[in-house]
Amino acid sequence: MAMFSQNPLLNGASYSFSEAPKFNAPEGAREHRFDPYTDNGGSTLAIAGADFTIMAGDTRLTSGYSINSRFHPKVFKIGGTTSDQSDATLVLSVVGFAADGEALKERLDAICKMYRYRHGKPMSVKACAQRLSTILYQKRFFPYYAYAILGGLDEEGKGAVYSYDPVGSYEREQCRAGGAAASLIMPFLDNQVNFKNQFIPGSGEGHALQERERHPLSRQEVETLVKDAFDGAVERHIEVGDGLQMMIITKEGIEEVVLPLKRD
C-alpha cells in the first residue's frame, strides 16, 4: 500500500510528479516517477431494508496524518434533473482517492441524466449498477482509485445495495462497508444484519445448531446500527470522524441527515 500512502516518511513530498534526483545517479541517468494517487481515508456503509436503503459515510478528508477537511461529503444523489438533485432516485458513495471519487460521481450523474432525458424515466438501480461497472472497467489499466457503493430501490420497491471494487467487479448485497474502516465495520454488519454466528439456543449440538432466521430490519434499527458502527470506527481509526452523513432512500424520495462524530 506504500504506493497510495501519503506518509511523507515513506514517500517524500506528495506531488504527482516527483523531481528527478540530481545527485547520486549514474552519468546521465534520471529517474522519473508518476504518483497520481492519494488515499484520502474515510469510510462508507450501506444497508438495504425491506422498502428502504440507507447509505452513510463520514465527512473527514485526510492526507497522511493531516485532516484537510472536516466536511467533505462522500455520499451523493445521482441522476436528478435539477442542480439540487431533489428528484434523484439513486445514491452513490465513494471512498479512496477523493478526486477520482468526484470524477466518477460526475460521470455517472451525467450518464443517468442523459438516460433520463432520452427515455423520459429515471434509470433503474439494476441498469445503473451495470453501467457503473462498465465505467470502472473502461479504466482497467489506469483505474479510478475508488471503492463505490450504489444504493436505491429495485423494480419491486425493495432496498438494493451494489458494491464495487476499483475496476468494476460488482455484486448486489444486503449490506456493505467500504474504505479505511471497512475491516472494522464489516464483521459487525455480518453479525447484526445477517445474524452470522447467531443460533437458536438448544436447537442442536455443534454444526447441527439452527441458525437464527434472518428478517429485514426496520429503519429505526438500521439507523442505530449505522451510528453504532461509525462510533466504533471513529474510536479506533484516525482517518474516520468529524461528521456522519446519512441518506435514506424510500419511495417518497431521499432524506439526508448529517450528525456530528468525534473530531479528535
Binding site: A181, S183, L184, M186, P187, F188, D228, A229, A233, E235
Partner: peptide, 11 residues
C-alpha cells in the same frame, strides 16, 4: 486485530 477492534468497540 482490525476486525476484533470493530467488533469489541461495538459489542
Amino acid at each position: 486485530t482490525e476486525q476484533l477492534f470493530g467488533m469489541c468497540e461495538s459489542l
